[in-house]
Computed example of a mutant assay.
Amino acid sequence: MKTKIIVLIILFVQFTLYAQEIKFIETELSIPTASISIHGTLLNPTSNGKKPLVILIPGSGPTDRNGNNSAMKNNSLKFLAEALANNNIASYRFDKSVLSYTKEQKSKIDSITFNTFINETKTIIKYFKTSKKYSKIIVIGHSQGSLVGIIAAKNNADALISIAGAGRSIDQVLKEQIGKQAPFLIADTEKVLNELKKGNTVDEFNPMLVSLFNKSVQPFLISWIQYNPQEEIKKLAIPILIINGTKDIQVSTIDAEQLHRANPNSEIKIIENMNHIFKEIKGDVNENMASYNNPELPIIQELSIIITTFVNHLK
């Protein structure tokens, strides 16, 4: 009996040391694009042989390679990249291009459109395909990055993974959000969105909507609003995995189901208790919101397991 206990203790210690071992090499990598150089981090597993590579596309706003911005720090993308690297999957995660401009370059920032993000992502995919160092190139888009990834992956990537991606065009999403938060503004919102959808900027609108329809962001919205995620995902003939969480308070699981129905060849996984930033939430909305600014809280383990299984089954 004592011998068995000693063996178990030794095995536990060995496993702990193995788990703590760094199993990847981290490299800073900048990739030039037509707009600006994209700055990111490449994680390469230390094991021998060609590995699959995932390209992690961040969500909306001035979000960096780790999934953080000035309003929140949760390290969601950083933790996911490291978990995948420990599962023998390489990754490249990058800062959104807006973060590479200075405040003095406001005109260049204002010239960024949704198509800018798409073209930058296509260039990143091409960079790694040209290197021929990886067995597969898989695009993972989070939130707004889901639609970017869906469009950029066509004829470029070997597979696509959408995490917390909207299943409707941005005008439909905004209408729903305003309808829930400020229903008295829905008519004014629809009026502006209808013009933006036609490709027209709007000079006069309800001042209460200025944060949403500031004149400088209207060109970006015009370029974004033209894309319907369901129509775009129909165009893909590559393996697709759609993921969402039951505790996501930003993007509903209904959106994941809409994307799945649009391309029935896709796989769909709904992760119980996962929120928008991959954290496990067992409590109320206050716990959910607090997780957005908790950089030490790990991501839910099921996410990396599901992604690893999908990637390993790619032919």
Rank of each mutant, 00 (worst) to 15 (best):
L11G: 10
L11T: 10
Q20T: 13
Q20Y: 11
E21S: 08
I22S: 15
F24N: 03
I25L: 13
E28R: 03
L29Y: 04
I31C: 14
T33S: 12
T33G: 12
A34H: 10
S35Y: 02
I36C: 09
T41L: 13
T41Y: 01
L42F: 02
L42Y: 00
L43T: 02
N44E: 11
P45R: 02
K51R: 12
K51N: 08
P52A: 13
L53D: 01
I55W: 02
L56F: 07
I57H: 04
S60C: 11
P62T: 04
P62S: 11
D64R: 00
D64H: 00
N66H: 00
G67N: 12
N69R: 05
N74Q: 07
N75W: 03
S76A: 15
L77R: 00
K78A: 13
F79C: 10
L80P: 02
A81Q: 05
L84W: 01
I89R: 02
Y92K: 05
Y92F: 12
Y92S: 08
R93S: 06
F94C: 10
D95V: 06
D95W: 00
K96H: 04
S97C: 08
L99P: 01
L99E: 09
Y101R: 09
Y101H: 12
Y101I: 14
K103G: 15
E104S: 15
Q105T: 11
K106R: 13
K106L: 15
S107W: 01
S107R: 05
S107N: 11
I109P: 00
D110S: 14
F117C: 09
F117S: 13
